[in-house]
């Protein structure tokens, strides 16, 4: 099979498989989970057994079921953030590149200022005012993350705007909309695809981190970052409960990164370091 006109490497296949499996888990969570999301079914931190494959959590809920429901919430929120962030960032980035110096200057300076505050710090400040709720979380992360997308989209588009074929379209008398949609966007997409994967990983880890700090997705919803937080104390007793959701987070991110790495390597050309000496 070929993807983007190339044959995936073994590592890329592993990544694709991981993405596939976890997407399926997220979509079919209620069908797959042996227990209800919030049902207390046993003692606190019960050991793994036939009925609870990974044991139970800090108030006796089934770890596997929580992980399955958590996939839905954690991946869903991160995906929503990334999609929204790309819509905002790409639109504004292309506009800045095509729409003239003034617009570009205004947008770029705003983004510069926003980027000079660390993302986590910025998010914490906003969440401290609005309080954590899923819509606030998604919008906050999407807006903050869109600054990075804006930077890339603008950089890519600025490179494309000076291409002769865009100039040829301008000489023909084409309008702004045509230039953006037909001449620039199709050529800007390839570098944006790998960026989408990277931004997803980043947002995914970020949402998990916020939830871990108690400022992201709130109980009673199961989410992986929050599950680590709830079970964190167990580690001092040598109980592995907080590691399972952390492992789940890691596997998903590694999976996406493997695919992104492969996409990036398609475009990379060998450097002088590997020439025959």
């Amino acid at each position: 099979m070929r993807l983007f006109g190339h044959k995936p490497t073994t590592l890329a296949w592993v990544g694709l498989a991981i993405i596939g499996v976890f997407s399926a888990i997220a979509i079919f969570a209620p069908l797959l989970a042996p227990h209800e999301e919030g049902a207390v079914v046993s003692d606190t931190w019960a050991a793994a057994s036939g009925s609870f494959w990974l044991g139970t959590d800090n108030i006796g809920r089934d770890m596997v079921s929580r992980l399955i429901y958590g996939a839905r919430m954690t991946i869903g929120v991160a995906l929503a953030c990334t999609i929204l962030s790309f819509i905002i960032g790409t639109t504004l980035g292309l506009l800045a590149a095509v729409g003239g110096t003034l617009l570009d200057q205004v947008l770029s300076r705003i983004v510069d200022v926003m980027l000079s505050i660390p993302l986590l710090v910025f998010a914490l400040m906003i969440l401290s005012m609005f309080g954590p709720s899923i819509p606030t979380l998604v919008i906050t992360i999407a807006i903050l993350d869109s600054t990075r997308v804006f930077r890339l989209a603008r950089a890519v588009a600025v490179n494309l705007v000076v291409r002769d074929y865009v100039e040829a379209a301008r000489l023909r008398g084409e309008g702004l909309w045509w230039l953006m949609r037909r001449e620039i966007l199709p050529n800007a997409l390839p570098p944006m695809i790998s960026e989408f994967g990277l931004r997803f990983c980043f947002n995914f880890l970020f949402v998990a981190g916020l939830s871990f700090l108690g400022l992201g997705i709130q109980p009673p919803y199961a989410d992986w970052g929050g599950m680590v937080r709830e079970n964190g104390r167990a580690i001092s007793f040598g109980i592995t409960a907080p590691l399972w959701p952390a492992i789940a987070i890691s596997i998903v991110t590694i999976g996406v990164n493997l695919v992104v790495d492969w996409i990036l390597s398609i475009n990379a050309r060998p450097s002088g370091a590997s020439a025959e000496m």
């Binding site: 990983c201 970052g225 680590v228 592995t240 952390a246 987070i249 890691s250 590694i254």
Partner: peptide, 29 residues
Amino acid sequence: SLATISVPEFFIAYLLILFLAVKLRYFPS
């Protein structure tokens, strides 16, 4: 390095705590 950047910081932290603090008792948790 790809694996390390793919892993949330608290995962590394808990792993280190589990092995170096709880099991081996080299460092405080």
